[in-house]
Design a protein around this nucleic acid. Structure first.
Lengths: 241, 241
DNA sequence: CCAATAGTGTCTTTCAGACACTATATA
DNA sequence: TATATAGTGTCTGAAAGACACTATTGG
């Protein structure tokens, strides 16, 4: 009945083959107004020279989440700041790696651009690239284009009904900066006035810290920190096509 | 950079250990007005005699989706009718199976009760149990309680913004039967009048077949088939707590 | 001064939820 | 007849989107 039973009756109706298990990371940030992804160039076959998602093999006694966090710190050089990390999906096509069977558990990370400048030091070959340019012009290794597409769609959908957008902002941010995150991820322009009214009206999303900044030019804006709200109710819906 | 590279530099910073990979199935249906799940009793250690999700090991040259469909047909005996199948998440705690490392990819299936009566023949030990009774009174094997909880929550959420509820109805159904599906999955009572107006007003959700039935008693109701709509806009929101 | 961003107020339309009312079956 | 389910109409309140208007900075 349970899959685990098959371990004890090998050959009855299937082999119980072993696979390598990896985690791959879709690390998204907003840089210069564009949704961007952290990619590295492959140094070996297969797909030498092509861009690929950062990733790691899962250790023998390591949980998937821990492997993802390790990949974030080691492979991608992302500081352990308040970074959003969630499982995205698992990709197990038998042909996805030409060398051997590799089942890859993909994770999605949303990080403020600031938290990841540390990347320079730890992962010199990792580079931020705008997502739309990657999707329109680059060929990614393995099935990473598909994983990226799934990650981007997940991020776009999650901004609607959760407060993860704040995970893409620095620790202190203005309503305008938060709005530009939404605009970058969705690729649309939002009405600043309606956005302001709606976002400040959502309980526990934004916590004012009583200071203003004029770093955007124009009238100084209030600075906020992330509140404890996780779900957005009512949701912030993207404009329809 | 990419996880796949680690295959070629074993021991640099981690082993590249092999795992068994399984699929486990959360198969939900509505039976006698209650959201129910298909479970089997384990015949071997560990967890002998305890209830467990149906599942299969993934074949050496088999994709995850194909393994899930196979598990649905073979292990669970679910007919290959228009059954909803989607990946739910992957569970890889190193201790989840005491015998060896097993990474399990969980799938969620929503099927009409009718499509699965064939279960009797193919999987004599599989039984439908009401979800709330399972969650309140039974101990499931492995981490299957957690997987079940995630599956149920996914199903509840998906009913809001997609048309999967129709996947829990027989091929031809009335608005009232569809409403009772929502009520069973969410565990709440809905206003029949508002539900009717809203669901029939959603384009391409329901296709009338021009026939009525009085199998519920009372005034005969129109029969519908599933339309081609996938997303529900506006969504059908659950009443708040 | 002008340009740019921040923030408030107001109007219209859409929609959710409450519920009165009619329609048509079975017991 | 009573009771159950199907289906329509109407009202109210919440909220989305459009947009006029004020506020406060820098150049």
């Amino acid at each position: 009945m349970s899959a685990h039973d098959a371990l004890e009756r090998p050959g009855e109706r299937l082999e119980s083959p072993l696979c390598a298990v990896a985690v791959d990371l879709v690390i998204l940030s907003v840089r210069d107004g564009a949704l961007s992804i952290l990619l590295g160039r492959r140094g070996q076959e297969p797909f030498v020279g092509q861009w690929a998602l950062p990733g790691e093999m899962v250790g023998a006694r390591e949980s998937l989440d821990v492997a993802a966090r390790r990949g974030l710190a080691e492979g991608a050089g992302v500081a352990d700041l308040p970074v959003h990390l969630e499982q995205l999906g698992t990709y197990g096509d038998p042909e996805r790696d030409p060398r051997m069977r590799v089942v890859s558990v993909a994770y999605l990370t949303l990080a403020p651009a600031s938290a990841v400048s540390a990347v320079r030091g730890a992962a010199p070959h990792a580079v931020w690239l705008p997502v739309d340019r990657v999707q329109s012009r680059l060929r990614l290794a393995f099935d990473h284009a598909r994983i990226l597409a799934d990650g981007v769609e997940r991020a776009r959908a999650k901004l609607e009904y959760s407060s993860v957008a704040a995970a893409l902002c620095p620790e202190e941010f203005t309503v305008g900066e938060l709005r530009r995150v939404y605009e970058a991820v969705w690729g649309v322009a939002l009405d600043p006035r309606n956005f302001h009214r709606k976002i400040t009206g959502t309980p526990d999303f934004l916590v004012p810290i009583g200071v203003t900044t004029s770093r955007q030019g124009g009238r100084p804006a209030q600075l906020f920190r992330r509140g404890k709200a996780v779900l957005l109710n009512p949701p912030m819906l993207r404009p329809e096509a």
